[in-house]
Amino acid sequence: METFKKNRLKTIFKSPEKKVSIYFTAGYPALTDTLDLLSLLAESKVDFVEIGIPFSDSVMDGEVILESHKVALENGMTIEILFDQIQKIRAQVSIPVVLMGSMNPVYQYGFEKFCQRCHEAGVDGLLLPDLPLDEYEKYYRVWYQQNDLAPIFMISPQTNGDRMKRIDELGEGFLYALSGNSTTGSTSEIGDNSEYLQRLSNHKFINPVVLGFNIKTKDDILFANQFADGAIVGSAFVKTLKGGFNKERTKHFLEQLM
């Protein structure tokens, strides 16, 4: 299809290798760290990044990411600034970028304008965990399509087979499978959900499936890869940024991870 000719996310998933993704929050620990983090991750072996749009009341997030949202907002991070930052660095980095966040800031920005700005800035996918599938289909899908933006949806242990099928039909790029029932950065172990993980790996998805939440170490990634096409590291990465972005420390964390 014409639409995804240039979508970087879709392109990288054409290769069969397992993927690793890193999540970080825009504007954390400092407002302009978004740029340095993106460059560093683009130079590393990370396959794609997810950038969190900070929100005052993100219910999906646990302590570490909540704190990063709070600091980012104190730093003055906004959607407009984030788009400017991504657009600025896009000429130098080709790593796929997925934006992730709660619906309200996007809704206030204006959904259509948001999708257009994603396209201009070079954003490849959008994940809004509290966006209902019906509403996506009825109102928003057209704007994702017009702007080469891959709609990313989540799957959880609560998602039954029929719904997995529907999510797979609507989703593009990849499906974001939660490793378990939890907020981000919880203490639960990803191995606790073997029945669900098996179900995931048995289901014949059209899209690649990437496992996220509570993936902290190389071992976790290897474990996730037994069931999925890749893994996303969030809180564990954000934790390393606490107190200030230190390039060497972050590099070291990434080397340990891969």
Binding site: P132, D134, M154, Q158, T159, R163
Partner: peptide, 19 residues
Amino acid sequence: NGFYGPYGGAYVPEVLYSN
């Protein structure tokens, strides 16, 4: 659909959807 005019609905993450 659970709306009063434009207000209401169920904007919940997938983990809570089935509940």
